[in-house]
Design a protein around this nucleic acid. Structure first.
Lengths: 248, 248
DNA sequence: CATTCATGTTGATTGGGATCAACGTGACCG
DNA sequence: CGGTCACGTTGATCCCAATCAACATGAATG
């Protein structure tokens, strides 16, 4: 199980469990030193709208954030779920504009950096630059896995896979243990992440519960049979680039 | 229509149609000067296997390349299709390892750079670094759009959307005009990109043909009704970050 | 020329998840 | 305390795409 370390600092969870040790003390100090603001936001708050010009990037410190796109009828498709330690919209730094919306799920605490400050921090720090770049590519790797989920798995597999992913990611930052973690999603949100309807997610959750694999109730996930869930979701955590690459 | 310019150089199509003008002559010269090899590969060649350690990155000069992942039964899900000008696996530079396979579709010509050479080129060139980073994030943006496609669109919408995307991307690098472009995919490949079966793709293509929207035959796509196809696929090219952001 | 193999095409049937509809449950609140 | 509202639950029905099966077409090969 991952230990909770360094959470007294702002960036304590950044890349935790994934090559964080490659960050030097100077790298971390430089990042910490250029934080612009730390603030809290309530649940269900729209943070950034697609097409908006962005000049700051935000790291999630506590809580959950999602990114999503709307279809013509206004139905949402989640394209990412962020957990503490994630640099939510660092891709806005090279991109300057986002192609999707970003909103909080539950209440959150976030820190933000002006892009100008980030540029300065990266100057003369090729290694830090590469680590920041790497962190944006982790999102891309997760995107790919989500494509796989939607393209190749049935409803139960999709939910199982997502739960496995969140479990591993939260374990890496010390926020899940023994397959138990908080998740402030409604069944409808889960549906929007899995390309299903809320009604069907409800049935899938019931099935997983009855089969003794997973219970999701009151915003708490309890994975009861990790192996079975991983099998059902065809889940292999390699795409998350964890430091300890165990297969389970 | 995009003009074909600069194709006499190796990197002539890199970022063409998307902020290429932000690359300085020095940036381009530095990239050109550090190419390791240029070579041709036959169709259906596996280039990189998931999990493999990578030390070079490859730009596609001619032809088409795909990235994909296998499910448990060996069925493929394409997660990306690359067109000339794409830096196919630049994400391998910060990542050092890939989470998916890469293979050619038709025959291709590619150029490659050792990562060490890329690191050197980026040194002291923060702007070039940011443009290279940007190019990897374009892939992430396309991934997100693919998630949307699979999660929210029906079979016809998925095929329509993919065709719209390829048309715009190929136009940007001067390889499509009037909605006509070569595409060395079989119906089965299209199915693997769209999360459908080959049989159903066949029916979808017939429907699109009969409705006068699109003809795909013998590796050639002809878009007959661009507007209708974009509507069907809920396609908005903004996520491709084109220089000329027209809505169509 | 016959054979084989990959690819495309079409029909019949099945099934998973959407949709429509109703009701349950608990938190909040006037 | 009764009403309302958000969310969850369950049943009935429908429909899109999968699956199974057969055949067509054309290129490559003996």
């Amino acid at each position: 199980m991952a230990e909770v370390t360094g959470t007294e600092t702002i960036t304590g969870r950044f890349l935790m469990g994934r090559r964080r040790s490659q960050l030097t003390a100077d790298d971390i100090a430089a990042l910490e030193g250029s934080v612009q603001t730390v603030r809290s936001l309530p649940a269900r708050t729209l943070m950034i709208t697609a097409g908006e010009r962005v000049t700051v990037s935000t790291m999630l410190l506590e809580g959950f954030i999602c990114r999503y796109m709307d279809d013509r009828e206004g139905l949402r498709q989640l394209v990412a779920i962020h957990v503490p330690g994630d640099f939510v919209d660092l891709h806005g730094f090279p991109m300057e504009m986002l192609d999707h919306d970003i909103a909080t799920l539950g209440p959150v605490k976030v820190a933000s950096w002006p892009h100008a400050a980030l540029a300065k921090v990266m100057e003369g720090r090729p290694n830090l630059t590469r680590m920041l770049w790497f962190s944006t590519l982790l999102d891309a790797a997760m995107h790919r896995e989500w494509i796989f989920r939607l393209g190749r798995l049935g409803a139960e597999g999709r939910v199982a896979h997502l739960m496995c992913e969140l479990n591993v990611r939260l374990e890496m930052v010390g926020l899940a243990s023994d397959g138990r973690f908080p998740l402030p999603l409604k069944q409808a949100d889960l549906a929007e992440a899995c390309g299903l309807t809320g009604v069907h997610v409800n049935r899938v959750l019931r099935s997983l519960r009855e089969r003794g694999m997973l219970v999701f109730r009151n915003g708490i996930v309890e994975i009861l049979d990790r192996r079975a869930l991983a099998t059902l979701g065809e889940f292999d955590p390699a795409y998350l680039f964890p430091d300890d690459l165990r297969k389970d």
